[in-house]
Each structure stands twice: as C-alpha cells, then as structure tokens.
C-alpha cells in the first residue's frame, strides 16, 4: 500500500513498471485473507473479552466436576445429597473485610445447596456442561445442513432450488418450539434420554436461516468469473461448490454459526424449562431454573446462578459473532474520523 516514491524509482514512467516494482518491494511475508481476518478479530475488544469469558466458563464447567468419568478438582458431586446447612445459602463471599464485609471466602457450598442438600455449584456446572454440549452440537449440525442445502440450491437453481427452498419454508412455518418439543420427546424416549438425541433434533430444525443466507451468497458468487473459469477448465460440480463457492461464504457461515449456538442455548433452556428437554436427574441450566422457579422469593440464588450463566454465555457468543462479522467484513465498521485542515497556499 506504500505510495511513496522510493529512491531510484523516479525515472519509472510506465504503470506496469511501477506496479511490478511495488510488487517486488513488498515484504516477502504475504498475508492471506485468513490472516487479515485474524488480525482484525484480535483487535476487536468486545469479541476478545467475550472469548476469554467463554473459555473461562467452559474450562471451569468441564474441569471442576469432571467429565466422562475423569474426576474434576471440585470435591462434590451433583448427585450426592447431604445435610442442608444454613438453609442452603451460598457460602461464597466476595466482599472484602476492609470494606466492612465478611471477607473473601469460597466456603463449602459457594453457590449454596438445593432442597435435598446437593451442592448447587456442582449442579450448575453440570448444567453448564450439558448446555454447552447441546449448543455446540446444534450449532455444528445446523451449520453443516444449512450450508450444504443453501449451496446446492444456489448453485443449481431451477427446480432443485424450488424444492429445497419450499422445504425450508416448511420448516420455517411450523412453530419451532412445538416441533422441537414433540420430536425431542420422541427422540428422548427412543434413545434413552440422551442429550445428543435432543441436540440432533434441534440441529435438524434450526438450519433454515443459514440455508437462505448461503443460497443468496452463492447466487451472487456463482456469477463471478473464477467460477466460470473453473467450470470451463472442466472441474466437477462438487469441486466448484466445495473449493470455489463455499469457502468464499465462510464469513456468513462462521458468523451465523455463532448466532446459531447462542440461539441453541436459549432454545434448550426454553425446552427444559417447559419440561420437554433435559430431564432430572440429569441437569441443565434451563431445567434448574424450571425446578426452582418457586424458590425465587426466599432462595433467589437457586434462580440467579443458572440465569446469570445463561445470559453470560448467550451474550458472549453474540459478541463473538459480532467480532467475527466485523473481522470478515470490515466495510461495516468504517472509521469515521474526519480530518480537514486548511493550510495556507503558497502562491
């Protein structure tokens, strides 16, 4: 991007020479689009903070109570009841003593205990694990289905497009929550209540938005000359779609995947709250809220902890998506600094 004339270049009088000289002068380090995107993303404050928050929450949720048989560093289990101490109030205290508080302490049950004396921290962490697993599975599945359906519809157009888009419309017009509740219930009873069954069902229902977006992108991309060039050199259709078209929609896909994840967390929460999602003794954030909705007045922590985690995770994922969108499409966040300075004209 340098435009200053380098020594020894003044005598160049043809655009071709100037351009070639500039190319030769560029540092050998060349940046791919991916590297540019990464750089912009790392400079996006909200997105970076959200990433850190998400990583901390995920690590805590999976390491504290352990996962898949590996024990964690938190000594208590989400299944084991014990005697209820002090009405199950949280023992966590962040108010330092020099400000008149009880001093910083974690205590035995930082998030408190539930009715039966189970450690609420362990329960919430278990719920967070399940919610994250469901969200990521749903995000990945719906992204794959949506991208492929959108790409095929946009590339072939004609009757293929008609059929696929009417199918998409069909999925859109049926109320998602009802369909998810019925199918989730069915899948749950067939597959023994596994959360993966629920995640699969949700993934197969939430791909519609991405399919439409990807189709629109592909419709415009397929008119580019590099696509015509690829077809003219005899490339197979699959190569054109997967090598030339889909990689160029990566911006749309990645950004929407993050929003799909945030949506999936909320959808799982709603379903579990309504009693169609995750079932006890398994735990999920929505289920915890549903179980303790009546405790809000006298034991509010049973409501606050899962509620706060849901909001934090969903917000962070959304900010992450915003950051990714800005990184992929920098035109949307243009710097609006106007500088106009008048200088005396020497005449």
């Amino acid at each position: 991007m340098k435009s200053d004339i380098e020594p020894g270049e003044q005598e160049l009088v043809s655009l071709v020479e100037v351009e070639d000289a500039e190319l030769a002068r560029k540092s050998s380090q060349s940046k791919s689009q991916g590297q540019l995107v990464r750089r912009r993303f790392l400079n996006h404050k909200a997105a970076m903070i959200s990433t850190v928050v998400l990583v901390v929450i995920t690590l805590t949720a999976f390491t504290s109570i352990g996962f898949a048989g590996i024990p964690g560093w938190w000594g208590q289990s989400y299944l084991k009841s014990s005697s209820v101490i002090n009405g199950g109030a949280p023992t966590l205290s962040l108010w330092p003593s020099w400000l008149g508080g009880p001093g910083f302490a974690i205590g035995e049950h930082p998030f408190g205990q539930d009715n039966t004396g189970k450690d609420y921290f362990a329960l919430v962490m278990r719920g967070t694990q399940k919610s994250i697993i469901i969200a990521v599975t749903v995000g990945a599945l719906s992204t794959c289905i949506g991208a492929i359906i959108g790409a095929v519809a946009g590339y072939f157009r004609g009757w293929v497009d008609e059929v696929l888009m009417r199918l998409t419309d069909l999925f859109i017009v049926i109320p998602l929550l009802v369909l998810a509740a019925v199918l989730g219930q069915l899948a749950g009873s067939k597959l023994g209540g596994s959360i993966f069954a629920l995640a699969l069902v949700l993934g197969m229902l939430t791909w519609t938005g991405l399919a439409r977006l990807v189709r629109g992108e592909i419709l415009s991309l397929r008119e580019r000359e590099y696509v015509a060039a690829a077809q003219a050199m005899g490339s197979k259709t699959s190569r054109v779609i997967f090598k030339h078209l889909l990689p160029n929609t990566i911006g749309v896909i990645v950004v929407n995947a993050t929003f799909a994840i945030a949506g999936a967390i909320l959808l799982e929460t709603s379903l579990s709250f309504l009693g169609f999602g995750v079932k006890a003794p398994e735990s999920s954030l929505g289920l915890l809220i549903s179980q303790y909705q009546n405790a809000f007045t006298n034991r509010p922590w049973l409501f606050w902890w899962p509620g706060m985690l849901i909001v934090t995770i969903a917000l962070s994922v959304n900010f992450l998506g915003d950051g990714l969108r800005d990184a992929f499409d920098p035109r949307q966040t243009k710097k609006t600094r106007r500088r106009t300075k008048k200088e005396e004209v020497s005449e």
């Binding site: 580019r224 000359e225 590099y226 015509a228 060039a229 690829a230 003219a232 030339h244 990689p247």
Partner: peptide, 15 residues
C-alpha cells in the same frame, strides 16, 4: 482449451 476473462478482479478465487 484455456480461457482469459474480462474482469481481473473476479477471475481469480480470492482464497
């Protein structure tokens, strides 16, 4: 058959 198109901005895959 080889081909050269008109628009140099669009005839190479940016990725």
């Amino acid at each position: 058959i080889g081909v050269i198109f008109q628009d140099p901005a669009a005839s190479l895959n940016p990725r």
